[in-house]
Design a protein around this nucleic acid. Structure first.
Lengths: 190, 190, 190, 190
DNA sequence: AATGAATGAGTCTTCATTCAT
DNA sequence: AATGAATGAAGACTCATTCAT
């Protein structure tokens, strides 16, 4: 039967929307955004192609929503409190949280890195990514500033670049990459 | 009239081939491999679509040839001699060479990073990239080994990851990225 | 609105599929498989090029499905029962059935003959054609065997070759070919 | 050196022309006219694509010339003399000549059969083929007429159809087709 | 006579998107 | 909400043919 109550609608919408995004994220990560067809997403999600357009305006919109969604989770987990006085332990906790996300959600990071390198699609998401990136920059900059470092901004940029480099290498060669030992090396940089 | 000599043809082939590869590299870097059509390459190179297939078996072949070509130039420039006893100065020279390439051939590095994140296409080139990557790993590993480091392999992997992270960040935000100051920070890691 | 039921979709698929196959058969027969473009099939069938690929995986798949489809109709009509004791009347009925098919479905036979002569495409369908051809061979061989003929296999092959020769000549010059009188001559060969 | 004498030119032209036709015939027979590219002919013949157009106006022209050439050889071999009084022995000799050609030049017959079934290309050659076919029809018709047969034309058509049927079956399954035993069965039809 | 670079129309095929139901 | 048939533009690629040399 087709008709349902309003509440049922909302529950279904939320679940389906999540299902589609999860499925798409996996495929985007595995095959890349361009090489993933809407048809293959629908098939893997067990829905019809048409339904996807009921939830997302376009393939691009789907990508955007996935990114925003993932980034907001990312932000939630990696919250750093008390910007006034940033302790090393807090940064370590942040880094470990970051690495945990990398291990547990490699798909989003794969997507993130592939988008970073493809300006065409990236433009849409640049704003969203900057919303996460800039505060992060500031935290690290402040940290080094408090430590009395001469070039806190440069050090912060350096550290974020290092994070990304490690992320990529880990994702390209997950099995062999000595992620835990390298984590210790990052800590030493703080 | 007599036909052109073999040598004349070779010159034409070499020049056109180079033109096509250069043009394609720029577009691949700017828009990504998947989003760059053969037609757009031909148009920008001022040739017909068909001609590309006179020089390259397929779009994929073009990508492969570009990568191999660029990597071999890369290898030439970054040669490290006397593996027995690697001096710090030599590594610094290597790093500076590397950064110079990054500044002067950003297109290839953009392509390289975008491929790294896209497993489908990357698979084709993995071997070629490993041919450059593995010897590099060894050089750095040997260096740290000679320095008496406990985990030379881990340190080498870390350093190469750092290179890539810096490369990406530089390419994404070339204007603002403090590449020279960050270069100094890398040197300190040696 | 509710979506169409599965059965409604099945009806649509069956009808469109049939339409496409019928249209393609006519064109394949008239112009040959290679010289018939998917575009021309779509145009004649009044559908878009893309839709054909919703029903058939490729042009080759379309050809295969048409052949299998036609051959199965062919098999149904030309069933020979009671292989133990094959009567001449039954063979005559078979031959007349065969000639009727030739008259009424010249397109399929044209396709069949053109494929027979083109090894490349033929390979795909050889199995399917053999499924019809071999049992036929056996029927005729058994018949001649029962008649006490010395070389029943050879006679059977001869007869099948004769059928094809007549088929081709009829199709090449349908207007003038004295098919009915020649039918009588075949009967005399039994 | 380029310049040559007039005679040298003519010899070269005749040889190259023959070479191209032979090569093309083999490929046309193996892969079909449509599926054989001019490039593949040139490659196999060891010449350049351009040169082919020095000898033949087009691919179609090449096909036509090949057909005419082959048919004329065919005609030469299968000459029947003294039409006034046609002896059975002469027809047998003709049939054996025919079968010998089939065995020794299967390529031309493959081409002939594939063209017969593809009206598009066939139209060009219909005239040429009729030039051989019609006189043949007449010979057999006369023969049966002299024998006092009621329907000599029908019998002649029947016999020619039988030839073609046997030809096709022989070419499709050369290894297993009992061509010599079937030859004897044809003789009995005379 | 001979070469092969170059063209451009045409081929098969894919795919994001729309729409009737 | 949900389906999948249908579209049409675009993509990779092929190939007969031309042309400068």
């Amino acid at each position: 039967m087709c008709p349902r109550t309003k509440q049922q609608f909302e529950v279904i919408r939320a679940e389906k929307s999540e299902l589609i995004m999860q499925t798409a994220l996996v495929l985007f990560a595995k095959k890349g955004y361009e090489s993933t067809s809407v048809g293959s997403i629908a098939k893997k999600a067990g829905i019809s192609k048409g339904l996807m357009y009921n939830y997302f305006q376009s393939k691009e919109d789907l990508l955007t929503k996935i990114t925003i969604n993932s980034l907001s989770q990312f932000s939630d987990v990696l919250q750093i409190e008390n910007q006034e006085h940033i302790k090393k332990e807090e940064l370590i906790r942040f880094i470990d949280g970051n690495l945990l996300l990398l291990k547990e959600s490699p798909d989003f990071f794969k997507l993130y890195f592939s988008l970073s390198a493809q300006p065409g699609v990236f433009a849409l998401l640049e704003q969203e990514i900057l919303k996460v990136f800039l505060p992060l920059m500031e935290v690290f900059s402040n940290y080094y500033s408090q430590k009395g470092d001469k070039n806190p901004d440069v050090k912060a940029r350096f550290l974020l670049a290092v994070f990304d480099g490690i992320g990529i290498h880990y994702l390209v060669d997950t099995k062999n990459f000595p992620i835990d030992e390298i984590r210790d090396m990052i800590i030493e940089l703080l």
